[in-house]
Simulated assay, not measured.
Amino acid sequence: MRYTVSLEHERALWDAGARVVAGIDEVGRGALAGPVSVGVCALERRKDWPEGLADSKELTPARREAMAVALAGFGVARAVGHADASEIDEHGIVGALRLAGLRAMSTLTRQGVVVDAVLLDGTHDWLTPPAADLFAAASGDPILALVPDAPPVPPVTTVVKGDGRCASIAAGSVLAKVERDALMAAADGDHPAYGWGRNKGYGAPVHLKALRKHGPSPLHRLSWSLPARDL
């Protein structure tokens, strides 16, 4: 089912007392190579959004890039954070998502924006720190240690298919997709065998074939089940 974005979920949080609501979405969770990227768009109360705004997956590359330009004036702040392949290997995909999200949130903080509430795409809140057990309490939070200027995470509301329903989340998805795609297209110049200019690090046939022939690059997620190199 294809949804049409609105500000319904944002409005509910504004009505509940939040001044700034941030929509957050991730890109690259299922890729074999490259970073996982998290886009954030922070909004104060408003009634409009850029015409044509939608889930990034529903837009062509050209329309995504045009929308990213249009989003430059949408809301009070926007940011994209990344966690690279080595960080995914070290902290797992959920930890890497939180790391990328906190990096994006810290960018908003440096811009002087305080977020009061978060709308997060999906069903699982990966942004809020997990409850600490005795070992974690003693050893500290390894993710937070990497983003010492990260603000406390405000209350998070998850929204199923939020990237197609909430204007703020859709904006975050477009910003993250455009920035991550650009990173992978640039990396394609250094590692052309894997076809990242087209597949952006996902498991396309040309990418899998190159992994079997050449093995992984420094940008691959080595903790993942990559195809074995042919002998």
Results as ranks from 00 to 15, higher is better:
129 P>M: 00
130 P>E: 13
124 H>W: 13
163 D>N: 05
192 P>G: 12
201 G>A: 09
180 R>G: 08
156 V>Q: 10
156 V>D: 09
139 S>F: 12
158 T>S: 03
130 P>V: 12
208 L>F: 07
201 G>I: 12
153 V>K: 01
195 G>A: 11
198 R>S: 14
145 A>G: 06
132 A>W: 12
198 R>Q: 12
217 S>V: 07
176 A>Q: 12
159 V>G: 05
153 V>L: 08
218 P>H: 11
150 A>S: 13
135 F>K: 15
159 V>K: 05
160 V>D: 03
203 G>I: 02
213 K>G: 01
132 A>I: 02
164 G>N: 07
133 D>N: 15
193 A>R: 13
212 R>M: 14
132 A>H: 10
185 A>V: 15
211 L>P: 01
176 A>R: 02
205 P>M: 04
184 M>R: 11
152 P>W: 05
182 A>L: 08
135 F>P: 00
177 K>T: 07
204 A>I: 09
138 A>W: 13
161 K>I: 04
185 A>P: 00
187 A>H: 11
163 D>M: 12
215 G>C: 11
170 A>F: 07
141 D>Q: 05
191 H>D: 03
181 D>I: 09
178 V>C: 10
131 A>K: 15
130 P>W: 01
136 A>I: 01
216 P>H: 04
205 P>E: 05
140 G>W: 04
181 D>M: 08
131 A>S: 12
141 D>Y: 06
186 A>R: 14
154 P>N: 03
148 P>F: 03
180 R>V: 11
205 P>S: 04
206 V>T: 14
170 A>Q: 11
180 R>F: 11
172 G>H: 09
156 V>P: 11
203 G>V: 09
161 K>T: 02
214 H>L: 08
183 L>K: 12
212 R>W: 02
192 P>E: 07
169 I>F: 04
187 A>Q: 13
210 A>C: 06
